[in-house]
Design a protein around this nucleic acid. Structure first.
Lengths: 192, 192
DNA sequence: ACAAAATTGTGATGTAAGTCACATAAGACC
DNA sequence: GGTCTTATGTGACTTACATCACAATTTTGT
């Protein structure tokens, strides 16, 4: 399926658009490819764009002073990724976005987005809805982290994204779950 | 300061509005009062409104099957609170919002909000910005939970909201920090 | 003002998971 | 295809924090 159709399917799940409206929206995007290991956003960058994943996988993460990585999100196809705090408030990037598995993405600038939101009310609604959904997902993750033990979180992740375990190295999954790679390894082998 | 002025100051920090526009916006709100212990949103409720805190304090939290509470957020003056997942996606409420210290709030329905966002572009921008800010705050909290130890999280909270410790009981703060009340008590007394 | 309920402090004990250390296995690069 | 790097498995030891138990204090309702 081509980029255009993937985006169209994605957005029409939430709002209705005329063909002309979708054309205007699609024209805001730039098609880009990234190879495993490439960075889309570096720490300290001025962030101007956000990314819609067509294929492959990205991750957004934070690096602390001791060079320890904490993964905030894996972005699989039809997910969006950026440093939204930096993008919206024009701060330098605090989080890093890079490519975990060779990826095709569509990117849009914050300015173009604001403009198209202004022109087409349905797009404005879509982005409010999408940001809201991201917020809800972030809260669910917080909740899961605070109420479930590691084993439960691991099993939930496995159930929700079975393909993730083939796609990305285990120490990244450990980082996402908030445990050491050793603990994940033991967990992984104790339950079969 | 009156409710009208508090909301006006809050919103004009982000967007510019004419007096007529602000009047239209303010007319969407209902002024309400809640006493300590009262619930604004119960688990399972149909959620129709969100709340802007003028004074006092609310908390949003989740109750698990063993009746253990996990606090997602304290809402102090000029903060917003609701179950946004439920509100936006018309699910029954999963989280509870109640009153921690006698509070005055302004409330607005999701429908009125969508309508005013449609009518006044600046308001639409404001709400995209605000949701985005909430999302960023949620991510920062996740990060803090995953990278900092309990003592650091406690000190950060203390630094950010010194008044919170007078306003709400310590076991609620413990729940917010994700530690047992006993651990918080020991921490609290070890560092003076 | 008094009883009942909620909040807080503190000791003793158990345990999940971090850290360190090293071995093995799998990919990446030329 | 062989070397170098990255990823993974596993044991030994340590530790922060949960849990349980009970006492002391504060707040709230009537």
């Amino acid at each position: 399926m081509d980029a255009r159709q993937i985006l169209k399917d994605h957005i029409t799940k939430t709002v209705e658009l005329t063909d002309a409206q979708f054309d205007g929206f699609y024209a805001c995007f730039k098609h880009e490819s990234f190879r495993k290991g490439q960075m889309l956003i570096r720490e300290g960058d001025a962030v101007t764009r956000e990314y819609f994943v067509l294929s492959g996988c990205l991750k957004t993460y934070f690096m602390n002073d001791e060079l320890r990585m904490t993964i905030l999100q894996f972005a699989m196809p039809t997910w969006w990724a950026s440093d939204y705090d930096a993008l919206y408030n024009r701060h330098p990037a605090a989080v890093i976005v890079d490519c975990v598995a060779n990826a095709e993405v569509l990117s849009i600038s914050a300015d173009d987005r604001e403009k198209i939101c202004h022109e087409i009310e349905a797009i404005g609604h879509f982005f409010r809805w999408r940001t809201n959904r991201g917020y809800a997902a972030s809260q669910r993750r917080l909740l899961s982290l605070m109420t479930n033990d590691t084993k439960k979180r691991y099993e939930d992740l496995l159930a929700q994204y079975p393909t993730l375990f083939q796609l990305v190295p285990k120490h990244l999954i450990a980082s996402y779950l908030g445990v050491s790679r050793e603990t994940l390894s033991r967990l992984y082998h104790s339950s079969r």
